[in-house]
């Protein structure tokens, strides 16, 4: 049988607002994502030049994970993220570079981001996490699957904690939601609670 696990904390980046456990950490009226996320980067004094080489999905994931993990000492943390658009936003950029059949000039720096799990790699590099990475695609936020998967990883000692969530970027619209599942924590780890936290930034 499964042990009962708990949610330690959760974070959102949605509509110009970055929050941790529902408490705002950064807010902006900027509607352009690239300007918004850069001002968040500066606001948190992030100091990570590689950030500027990332695509939008990875920038979103990097800032979201920074806020979530700022006081985290555990390194054995698995990642199980999901979204709807995979890497389609960057896929469209890559497609544009190769539209001219006779003279395609694909950009390696764009192409490498045409996979949704690259943002898991960016989080892993940033936070030195040598652990499980899985990226799922659903047509909407799917608490059921993430709940079962996190339980499985923890029950089988794949990691001490699991970061689960939704990391969506598509045509300028973004929605990031991450939460940490562990043995202890203030929130229940249940499908109802995950759905409630998802809806309360």
């Amino acid at each position: 049988m499964n042990k009962e696990y708990r949610i330690q904390r959760y974070g959102h980046i949605r509509q110009g607002r970055i929050s941790l456990n529902g408490i705002p950490r950064f807010e902006s009226n900027e509607t352009d994502f690239s300007i918004f996320i850069k001002s968040a980067y500066k606001n948190f004094d992030t100091q990570y030049p590689k950030f500027f080489k990332m695509d939008s999905l990875s920038k979103l994931a990097l800032i979201a994970s920074d806020v979530l993990l700022e006081n985290e000492n555990e390194k054995n943390i698995a990642l199980a993220l999901s979204n709807r658009a995979a890497s389609l936003d960057t896929d469209r950029r890559h497609q544009k570079t190769i539209q001219d059949i006779e003279n395609p000039f694909a950009s390696p720096a764009v192409f490498v981001y045409t996979l949704p799990n690259i943002c898991l790699g960016e989080i892993s590099i940033r936070h030195r996490l040598f652990s499980e990475n899985s990226f799922f695609i659903f047509d909407r936020f799917n608490a059921d699957s993430l709940f079962e998967y996190a339980n499985s990883l923890l029950a089988n000692q794949k990691s001490e904690k699991v970061i689960c969530g939704w990391m969506e970027f598509d045509q300028g619209k973004y929605d990031a939601f991450l939460y940490v599942v562990a043995k202890n924590g203030i929130f229940a780890h249940s499908i109802e609670e995950i759905n409630r936290l998802y809806l309360t930034p």
């Binding site: 030049p49 080489k53 000039f105 694909a106 950009s107 390696p108 720096a109 490498v112």
Partner: peptide
């Protein structure tokens, strides 16, 4: 400048393009 392997590939494309 701390460039990496992807930057090197990008420079190869720049030479061509």
């Amino acid at each position: 400048l701390g460039l990496d392997s992807i930057d090197a590939l990008e420079l190869i494309v720049m030479l061509d393009k």
